[in-house]
């Protein structure tokens, strides 16, 4: 069974969102992509289409990408209405043409959300995620101040669970998939990751309050427990982390109401 994959070529029509700038009007335009090797990735297919557009003197389609192996979180296409396309637990760049059929019409749009303003064509601005991280997505540990690593054992179960959450690639598919454009899954992944570790306790209250408040300020919507986010997430981050976030937020709010200094410290031990 060497090279089991079929190499019968396919042709498709792309219906692509074109918008030359944030203030311009956008529209769908059709492009045909012919004789594609099904082992091509979706982004490689766009590369080929773009070279053809360039040759015809048209501007190529702007799309965001970098690692092309599902880890950097840059790629961000909504394909046939689904953020990151038809596959489960993968990013746009891990989508291969073998997921489509000859003659398909494929609709390609950017990740749409008010908190992700459009830059051009399929590229959006996700700076709002950075802002949330800057507000509290960290454990304060200046270089040079760290104690011996094995001084603090972490139960394997907690470490594994923290890692499950820490795998978030910050792509924003959860936001694009949510009808409220909520960033709860993204925020809950970071709050869960750091909150599950003993190192993260000191700033636990401060972190959750600051991250959630910034999320609201940045214009993300509320979570109404539809869980479209987990379904679209390329790292299948579980919505259980959202429940955990809600609990953390509630207890941090209570503690900070009774004891305002908790908002600026951990409060984890209270």
């Amino acid at each position: 069974m060497v090279a089991a994959s079929s190499t019968k070529s396919i042709s498709v029509t792309l219906r692509v969102w074109r918008q030359s700038g944030p203030k311009e009007l956008g529209q769908f335009k059709d492009y045909s992509a012919k004789d594609l090797n099904p082992n091509m990735s979706f982004l490689e297919m766009l590369d080929v289409v773009n070279d053809e557009l360039t040759a015809r003197g048209e501007e190529p389609i702007a799309f965001a990408h970098d690692c092309r192996e599902g880890i950097c979180g840059t790629c961000s296409l909504t394909i046939n209405g689904k953020p990151h396309g038809p596959g489960k637990g993968i990013a746009t760049c891990q989508t291969y043409m073998r997921s489509f059929h000859d003659g398909d019409i494929i609709v390609v749009e950017p990740f749409r959300a008010a908190a992700f303003p459009l830059i051009k064509d399929l590229v959006v601005d996700r700076t709002s995620f950075d802002k949330i991280m800057q507000a509290g997505g960290f454990i304060t540990a200046r270089a040079g101040s760290a104690p011996e690593a094995n001084g603090l054992p972490v139960p394997k179960g907690d470490a594994d669970r923290a890692m499950d959450a820490a795998q978030c690639i910050g792509c924003g598919a959860c936001v694009a998939a949510c009808k409220n454009a909520s960033a709860m899954l993204f925020v809950s992944a970071k709050v869960g990751h750091l909150g599950l570790l003993p190192q993260g306790q000191a700033e636990r209250d401060r972190r959750v309050l600051a991250m959630v408040n910034t999320m609201d300020e940045e214009g993300f919507g509320n979570c109404t427990n539809q869980y479209e986010c987990s379904a679209a997430c390329p790292k299948t981050i579980s919505h259980d982390f959202i429940a955990r976030l809600n609990r953390d937020y509630l207890s941090a709010s209570l503690r900070s109401a009774f004891r305002p200094e908790a908002a600026s410290t951990g409060g984890g031990g209270a």
Partner: peptide
Amino acid sequence: IDQCVAQGVPFAR
């Protein structure tokens, strides 16, 4: 390694 653990890097255990 000390620095990364203090930051919350979830190394395998």
